[in-house]
């Protein structure tokens, strides 16, 4: 295959790939009450919380996160066992049935912001993009509250 043809194939793939981000079932997904805690420095991982509501007629599956704030954002889940020991693990894909919502809240599911690139400063916001299985994306601005915040109201 000649280089010019390879480039054309890649270009056409990119072109075909683009529209799927705008026409997707996940376009009926909305994010409510997003918030995060401020960080101390840039060494500690951060966490963000929100309610993800699927107003569509098909299920939507959250498969990943992107943000300039963190090199490795991922949905994690905290679990506490019968002996009171808490642990965290990647939650995998999150399926949201039509008409339902999933809450990311302290002590359960959260957007884990690993290897942060920027200090999270109270009063600022950062963009967080949710990637869905159908190729759709949703970007929300997450307000950064104080380190001792307990919920979206502070």
């Amino acid at each position: 295959m000649k280089p010019s043809i390879t480039a054309a194939v890649i270009a056409s793939c990119l072109f075909i790939g683009l529209p799927t981000t705008t026409v997707a079932d996940s376009e009926d997904v909305v994010v409510e009450n997003a918030w995060a805690r401020a960080s101390i420095g840039v060494n500690r991982p951060g966490a963000a919380y929100m309610t993800i509501r699927n107003n569509g007629t098909d299920s939507a599956t959250l498969v990943g996160l992107e943000t300039p704030l963190s090199m490795m954002p991922d949905i994690h889940e905290t679990k506490t066992d019968a002996n009171g020991v808490s642990s965290m693990a990647p939650a995998g894909d999150i399926m949201i049935p039509p008409g339902e919502s999933v809450s990311l809240e302290p002590g359960g599911l959260h957007a884990m912001l690993m290897r942060p690139q920027i200090k999270m400063v109270e009063g600022e916001t950062f963009p967080l993009t949710l990637n869905f299985a159908d190729g759709g994306t949703l970007t929300v601005d997450v307000p950064i509250l104080g380190i001792s915040a307990r919920g979206p109201e502070g």
Binding site: R37, R44, P45, A47, M88, P106, G107, H110, I147, R150
Partner: peptide
């Protein structure tokens, strides 16, 4: 360095 349980 605990992002969820400890600050909560």
């Amino acid at each position: 360095y605990c992002p969820d349980v400890c600050p909560t």
